[in-house]
C-alpha cells in the first residue's frame, strides 16, 4: 500500500516536471518566433525587446519555483 502511494507520488512529480518542460518549450518557441517575425517581416525587431524580456521573466519564474524549489528555502528543512 505504502509502495503504491510512493509510486503514485513519484509519477505525480515526474508529471509536474513534464508540464513545466512543455510550458518552457512553448515559451521558447514563441520567443523565437516573435523575435524573428518582428525583425524580418514586421521590421519592428527593436520594439520586441520588452516582450522578449517578459517571456524570459515568465520562464525564469517557472524554473525557480518548480525546478529549483525556492519554497524549500522557507520550509522547516525536514524534507531529507
Amino acid at each position: 500500500m505504502e509502495d503504491a502511494n510512493l509510486e503514485a507520488k513519484k509519477k505525480e512529480k515526474y508529471g509536474a516536471g513534464v508540464t513545466i518542460l512543455i510550458l518552457l518549450a512553448v515559451a521558447s518557441v514563441g520567443e523565437y518566433i516573435i523575435a524573428v517575425t518582428g525583425q524580418n517581416l514586421l521590421k519592428v525587431g527593436a520594439d520586441m525587446g520588452f516582450v522578449l524580456i517578459l517571456i524570459g521573466v515568465f520562464k525564469a519564474f517557472l524554473v525557480i519555483r518548480d525546478y529549483m524549489h525556492i519554497g524549500r528555502l522557507f520550509s522547516n528543512g525536514e524534507e531529507h
Binding site: I55, I64, Y67
Partner: peptide, 23 residues
C-alpha cells in the same frame, strides 16, 4: 539547483545576445 541556476542565466542571456535589437 546550481544546474537550474545556470539555465536561468541563459534564459536571459539568449534573447539579450541573439534576439533583442536591430541587426
Amino acid at each position: 539547483v546550481y544546474w537550474h541556476f545556470v539555465d536561468v542565466v541563459w534564459i536571459f542571456y539568449y534573447p539579450a545576445l541573439y534576439l533583442i535589437g536591430n541587426l
